[in-house]
Amino acid sequence: MHLHHDDAFPDSHVHGPAGSAGEGPDGRRRALRIGLGGPVGSGKTATVAALCRTLRAELSIAVVTNDIYTREDAEFLLRQAVLPADRITAVQTGACPHTAIRDDISANLEAVEDLQDHLGPLDLILIESGGDNLTATFSKGLVDAQIFVIDVAGGDDIPRKGGPGVTTSDLLVINKTDLAPHVGADLEAMARDAKAQRGDLPTVLTAVKTAGGITPVADWIRERLAAWTAGPA
């Protein structure tokens, strides 16, 4: 299984210190930035929380949430104490969550820049998009790779329907498999449809809230990070 796009790491062109250039202002390789998108309620925040709990002992992590109406996602992460408060920032998106992660990434880049200023060099920055539709994707100017989170309760035909999130994300997470029997979702069909839409791009079926459910996602991040750190600065 191929884990990476051919264009995994965007061309480095310098648009200021927190643009897509691979090198930070200090000449050190900057933090790997991973975007998490997907429909409302699919489990993006739960994934971020579980990733932080699993990886925080080995990595220096920060989180940017894009809340549409409130600061709820940031506040959930704070309440759960998955990271110290100064490692979590909320960006306000102005009624259009996909604009803030794709067409006009200014506010998110600023949040990333501020986290780096306050915390010093980081290994990993997770950027959660506001819950959106199946066409939401992250700009390469903002993230190095994107995870798309859908869930079995949202309808087991979503992988078949496709859309940029399902077809082009670097990792597709089909979450809440624990609910499959209750909602009558056909997991095998979902896996098969995802494979047909995504070719060699990886998909995991999991339940991130159950014990060990985050492991395949955390392992994927570790692999990306190893490749990123080894890459040219």
Partner: peptide, 8 residues
Amino acid sequence: RFPAGGHA
């Protein structure tokens, strides 16, 4: 559409 944050 000039990407300078105004949409928010």
